[in-house]
């Protein structure tokens, strides 16, 4: 979190049941795993891409929106799609 503070109390009620709030979140999680298996990127590259999102976008996005944007960014940068 880069040393930032001020995010308030922990949302302890977000128990993770169900683990994904919507089907697209599960698909994003799965796509990230598949692309790691294929060697397109590794976990650190994904995390680094998440952290490279513009700060306003990063803070406004939900957790899996950040993952989706990071995967889109990496796929572009790696040139793996025609």
């Amino acid at each position: 979190m880069g040393g930032q503070t001020g995010f308030g109390p922990v949302p302890v009620g977000e128990s993770g049941d169900p683990p994904f709030a919507a089907d697209w979140e599960a698909r994003v999680y799965a796509l990230a795993t598949m692309l790691r298996r294929r060697g397109v990127f590794n976990s650190d590259e994904l995390r680094n891409a998440i952290e490279r999102l513009p700060p306003d976008r990063y803070l406004a996005a939900s957790y899996y929106e950040r993952w989706l944007a990071a995967i889109e960014m990496l796929v572009r940068e790696k040139g793996v799609l025609p």
């Binding site: 930032q4 995010f7 302890v12 957790y63």
Partner: peptide
Amino acid sequence: LGPSPGWYKSFAYRSR
């Protein structure tokens, strides 16, 4: 542990 809970991924838990 199964898929992680929402709070584990929250800015508040991670930073604090």
